[in-house]
Design a protein around this nucleic acid. Sequence first.
DNA 1: GGCATGTGCAACTCTGGGATTGCACATGAG
DNA 2: CTCATGTGCAATCCCAGAGTTGCACATGCC
Lengths: 109, 109
Amino acid sequence: MDHDVVDGVLAALADPTRRQLLDLLASHGQATATTLAGGLPVSRQAIVKHLTVLDSAGLVGSVKIGREVRYAVRSEALDTTARWMASLAADWDRRLARIKRLAEAAEQD
Amino acid sequence: MDHDVVDGVLAALADPTRRQLLDLLASHGQATATTLAGGLPVSRQAIVKHLTVLDSAGLVGSVKIGREVRYAVRSEALDTTARWMASLAADWDRRLARIKRLAEAAEQD
DNA sequence: GGCATGTGCAACTCTGGGATTGCACATGAG
DNA sequence: CTCATGTGCAATCCCAGAGTTGCACATGCC
C-alpha cells in the first residue's frame, strides 16, 4: 500500500525548513547541497540531512555528477499523498452527512 | 492565505498517534477524550494534548455537553491541504516538463 | 603533483514536544 | 448532600531530531 509513502511524506513535510528546501529545489530545477545551503540560514550538513529525509520520503531524487550530487524534486510521492488526503476528507464528509441524516430522521419522531 | 492552515495541518498530521486519533474519531463520529483514551495505548492527558493540536489545526471541533467534551472530525482544513498539495505537485510537474523540453531542444543543436 | 572545492562521516549540543503523574475543580447520579 | 466520573492545570521526564563543528576523503583544475 502507499500508506508507507504517505507516512514518510507527512513526516518530511512537517518541517518548515524542508518545505523551504523543496521550494528552492523546485525553482532551481536542480541543485547541490552546497548551493542550497547558500539560500538558507543553515549549514550545508543540515541541508544534507534534510535532503536525506526528503529522499527517503521520495520527494526528491539525486544524481551524482563528477564530484557533486545534484538533487531534483519528484512529484509522485507528493501526488500520492495529496490523493490520500483528498479521499480521507471525502470519507469524513460521507460519514458526517450520514450522521446528519440520522439526526434529522430521529428529529421527526 | 491558507498557508497557515496548511502549516498547522502538516504539523498535526506528522504524528502517527494523532492520525490514529483521527481515524478513531472518524469511525466513532463523535467521542470524548476519555473514551478515545480507551482505544489507544496512551493516557487521557496525552489524548487531550493531541486533540488540542488537532483543534488548532482545524482538523477537529469540540462541543461541551454537560460535564463532557465531545470531539468530532472536520474535513475543511484537510481538504484545503489536499488541494494545496495537489497544486504543488502539478506545479512541480510543469517545471519538470519545461526542463525536459529545454533539454531536448538543446540536444538537437 | 599541488591546490581548491564539494561530499561524507561522526561526535556533540540543545530545544521541542510526546507522555506521564498527581491533584484540584465541575457536574451528573443516587 | 455525597459520591462517582470526566476535565483542566502544572510539574516533570525523556528522547527524537534539528543544527553545529571538525576532519577525512574524493574529484576537478592548474
